[in-house]
Nucleic acid binder design. Structure first.
Lengths: 347, 347
DNA sequence: GGCCTTTGCCAATACGTATTAACTCCGCAA
DNA sequence: TTGCGGAGTTAATACGTATTGGCAAAGGCC
């Protein structure tokens, strides 16, 4: 029951009959450290026998780096962010970094970021900082990479959000839609704003304008999409197509349509954005714009670790990651007859 | 550009004209510490002015506790575990603990747990340890709480998994199903095994046995459910109802039915388990057994923190959390006519 | 005014590791 | 013999905090 204290490098030293620094040299120092072969073997055996695990906190304290990176996401309830995290963790772990995941859960993350700072994370990856409401001052003299955000101050990793909006618009235009609505972001998430901008700009270039009543704002959740769509369906003049800034929102919108017995895509076409797994699980399947979430995370991790190890010059701006339209079942030409081209959108 | 070194308690001491221990006494020591009012004020002001943040690693090193708890989940791609984490984080943060989330991503978590150990987490919450393939030896002399697992050695927090299976079985029996299949877990996740046991036992008591070909095993993913269901549909003798150990599996099964143009619930009834948000987004909505994921996490956190602070006697076994059947659209009586009682299952 | 208690602060040390400088051997050349 | 250099090890120290014991000053008591 007596919680035996952890075995330290001193214990290993004692057992191997050497001093503690020698243990440190063998186990963590440069492999080119001058230590006799026999000694090294003795130390290794002693460490093995005692089950020695170095105390990473002590190591971080003296080395002034913890080999941990902090990751801040606004929520894990959106599978998109889970994918970003997955991509990012794979890289980080492979490079020998631990990931301290900080889940905003919708609340302000400032205090949690304070904690990360206090735990001496070497760097920070912040996803959708706008949503997190993070004061810049908090990040003073930290190494930071932003995901899906723009910034003069810190390097960023983004997808081509304008193109996402453009692809959605082009798809709807091509199908013949002119009465088009959008459910945009309620908060200041940069990527979502840019999706919106790309969408609206493309429509405008085609001579189609979105009536202000058809431009709604909703939190990026299922419920948000549901309520916004309900509002749209309640108008006397309904759009024939709706672009949602996020797949979750689109799924909510789809749900609202089903509840209201509005047929999708016959009466209303829906386009989402992200291409989360769930998008393929509904009936009909969701037409959406695929955003490479995992790759976004992986790139952010590579960039950050590069900065941490290679110096700050690694921040050569890479171009945004490409996105692509995925035609599925929730889009079709407007006022389609029940027969005809109805299945056109699905493969 | 020169990354100014962090401000330490020594800096604060210098500015306030006191010694470092005094700073420590004021800022972190017992509030009843004997410090003159004026001194305390000076220290607090100096700390404020310098923007002092204590180094939590150093503190952890000397206090031999880090006020961090490690959390291990097999994957974050299953929203169920995200909910558990959400519930758990809320409690932990409120109690002043940081959460170090360790995402298995399907791979063995042992090395990551090593890292958590090395970072001196005060305790560990491990969810679905069986899936994680975690050797017990790794956890020697750690304070651990298991979620959805049974163990003689460590305290556990569970839902009433047998009841979950029983409720599903009773529901299907009540509807009149006799040709019943199940898609069970492929790995050794205890809760899923118990769901299965409860399900099969209840059927057996009612004189219904599940033919071995109708008892399939699949990983707890959408794809797993999809493939298992495809296999079931390929048999010459099809069941009229299928219980899936997990909602994700059920969603995959539903997807497989839709793809195969098998109508749900008319031709096949489906029951899931977990009640994740997604279960309400499909058409028809998924009938399932609700498991209080968030509460599961919250309880685990409370139990662990109680053990950390109050001593090991707090582990008085609480009864498993209750589960409840949620009737929705994927269940109906077998061989139902297109009209009649078809919608009975939905509210 | 001496003695004891209380108050307020600090010197010293510990936590477990990494790193630097120094120290010991030992052989070898001058 | 002295001096020198390199190989192998260790003593000393630092990282930033918390904690213990003690020291000086202030106050209470007779």
């Amino acid at each position: 029951m007596a919680k035996r204290t952890r075995v330290t490098s001193h214990d290993v030293a004692a057992r191997a009959g050497v001093s503690q620094p020698t243990v440190s040299l063998v186990l963590s120092g440069n492999p080119r450290a001058r230590v006799a072969k026999a000694t090294r073997a003795r130390v290794l055996r002693a460490a093995e026998e005692l089950g020695y695990r170095p105390n990473l906190l002590a190591r971080a304290l003296v080395q002034q780096r913890s080999f941990a990176i902090g990751v801040v996401v606004p929520t894990l309830s959106n599978p998109f962010f889970v994918d970003v995290v997955n991509g990012l963790e794979r890289v980080a772990v492979a490079e020998g970094y631990a990931v301290l995941l900080c889940n905003g859960r919708g609340e302000p993350v400032a205090p949690q970021v304070e904690t990360l700072r206090g735990r001496m994370v070497d760097g920070l990856i912040i996803d959708a900082a706008g949503a997190a409401g993070l004061p810049e001052a908090l990040l003073a003299d930290m190494t930071v990479v932003l995901v899906e955000e723009v910034s003069e101050r810190w390097p960023t990793v983004t997808s081509d959000a304008e193109a996402a909006g453009r692809l959605a618009a082009e798809h709807l235009l091509e199908l013949g839609h002119r009465a088009v609505a959008m459910i945009g972001p309620a908060t200041d998430v940069h990527a979502l704003r840019r999706r919106e901008r790309g969408f609206l700009a493309t429509l405008r270039q085609a001579g189609v304008s979105v009536r202000s009543r058809w431009l709604r704002r909703a939190p990026a959740t299922v419920r948000g999409g549901q309520e916004a769509m309900r509002a749209l369906l309640g108008l006397d003049a309904r759009p024939t197509a709706v672009f949602c800034a996020t797949d979750l929102v689109a799924l909510g919108a789809l749900k609202a349509c089903v509840s209201a017995r509005v047929r999708v895509p016959e009466e209303v076409s829906l386009v989402g954005c992200d291409d989360i797994e769930m998008a393929r699980l509904t009936t009909p399947e969701l037409t959406t714009v695929a955003v490479p979430a995992r790759e976004l995370g992986a790139r952010a991790a590579r960039l950050l670790i590069g900065m941490l190890e290679g110096g700050p010059d690694t921040r050569g701006r890479r171009r945004p990651l490409p996105v692509s339209l995925v035609r599925r079942g929730t889009t079709a030409p407007p006022v389609a007859s029940a027969g005809g081209a109805r299945m056109e959108g699905s493969r």
